[in-house]
Amino acid sequence: MTKLRNYDGAPGCSIEAALHIMGGKWKGVILYHLLLDGTHRFNELQRRLTGVPPRLLIKQLRDMEEDGLVVRKVYPVVPPKVEYSLSDEGRSLEPFILGLCGWGDAWLKRRGMTTAAQMRADEEAAGLKSDAPFLAEEQG
Rank of each mutant, 00 (worst) to 15 (best):
K73C: 12
P76I: 13
I97R: 01
M113F: 10
A136Y: 15
I30G: 05
E83L: 09
A18R: 12
K3R: 15
L57F: 05
C13V: 13
E138G: 08
R47V: 04
A106T: 04
N6T: 13
I58F: 13
Y75V: 08
G12N: 14
L31W: 01
G12K: 15
P80D: 14
K25E: 10
L135A: 11
R41Y: 09
I15M: 12
W103Q: 14
L4F: 09
G9A: 11
F134D: 07
S92H: 09
V77P: 09
G99D: 02
P11C: 00
R120P: 00
L69Y: 04
D37N: 00
P11N: 00
L31N: 04
H20L: 13
T114E: 11
G38I: 03
Y75S: 06
G23D: 01
V52Q: 02
Q60M: 03
C13F: 14
A132P: 00
A18Y: 06
E137K: 09
P53Y: 06
D131K: 10
E124A: 06
D37I: 03
E137W: 08
G99R: 08
M119R: 12
G90S: 02
D63T: 07
S92A: 14
L69D: 01
P79L: 08
C13D: 14
L128E: 05
Y75P: 01
D88N: 12
L61H: 00
L69Q: 01
I58W: 14
L4E: 10
Q60D: 14
D122L: 11
M119N: 12
M119K: 12
W103E: 15
L108E: 00
E83G: 05
S92G: 08
T2I: 15
A121F: 07
F42E: 04
K25M: 06
K3G: 14
G38N: 00
A136L: 15
L45D: 04
